[in-house]
């Protein structure tokens, strides 16, 4: 019983008690052990964190939008009635690159209906918008070479090479299409009808080194 009283009080006055490890020493040892382990684990891999980062500029996908615009006061969608052999008509179209970079364009002209095969097409560019003066079609700038090799019969779609067109309205390609009804069209075609369609396409091909922009 006296031993219990001594423990409860925390005093250490028992001279007959057997020697035992002091509690304070055990706590100290545990603390040292834990501290040492911590020192070992951090000290072995210790470093100072210092990071840096850079962001790229905006990486934007290319856009290849194309617009075909009626020009010189005409409308490509206008109908033409009562065509006779050797009749011809012009249609003026501006090919505008509304994309984000210069593109190379190709085009097709095709005919459908009963007049297919009896229409021919010629297409030529002008450096400035086409005009019509006293009924005559005028290129006031530099007239380009024909986009097709001479007048081609539209038995099948005719391919045109528009070439490179920069972006924006100022760089639009001014094209004059001339459609001619064949002189040898048979009289059996009287009253028959057809249509023509023009299409312009560009192909955006990647695989280029864009390191410098």
């Amino acid at each position: 019983m006296p031993h219990r009283r001594h423990r409860a009080s925390g005093a250490h006055h028992c001279g007959t008690c057997p020697p035992r490890r002091p509690r304070a020493r055990r706590v100290t040892a545990l603390a040292l052990a834990a501290g040492g382990a911590a020192l070992v684990s951090t000290g072995a891999l210790s470093s100072w964190d210092a990071t840096a980062k850079v962001d790229s500029g905006d990486l934007t996908a290319s856009s290849g939008e194309t617009t075909l615009l009626d020009a010189n006061g005409g409308a490509f969608s206008a109908a033409v009635a009562n065509l006779l052999p050797n009749d011809y008509f012009h249609r003026y179209v501006d090919v505008r690159n509304d994309g984000t970079q210069v593109h190379t364009y190709t085009g097709t002209v095709s005919a459908t209906g009963d007049l297919a095969g009896y229409l021919s097409v010629d297409a030529v560019t002008c450096s400035v918008p086409w005009t019509t003066v006293a009924g005559a079609s005028i290129c006031g700038g530099v007239q380009g070479t024909s986009l097709v090799s001479g007048a081609s019969a539209l038995n099948a779609p005719v391919v045109l090479t528009h070439g490179s067109i920069a972006t924006g309205a100022a760089a639009a390609q001014h094209v004059r299409y001339t459609f001619t009804f064949a002189s040898n069209a048979p009289s059996s075609l009287q009253g028959r009808a057809g249509k023509v369609t023009i299409a312009v396409n560009n192909t955006l091909v990647g695989g280029n080194d864009r390191t410098s922009g």
């Binding site: 856009s63 290849g64 939008e65 194309t66 617009t67 075909l68 490509f76 969608s77 206008a78 109908a79 033409v80 009635a81 009562n82 065509l83 006779l84 249609r91 179209v93 994309g99 593109h103 209906g113 009963d114 007049l115 229409l119 459609f179 009804f181 069209a185 075609l189 009287q190 009253g191 028959r192 009808a193 057809g194 249509k195 023509v196 369609t197 023009i198 299409a199 312009v200 396409n201 560009n202 192909t203 955006l204």
Partner: peptide, 12 residues
């Protein structure tokens, strides 16, 4: 990418 237009009716 491209665009196309169709003419009106062409009648003989």
């Amino acid at each position: 990418a491209g665009a196309s237009v169709v003419s009106g009716s062409l009648t003989m």
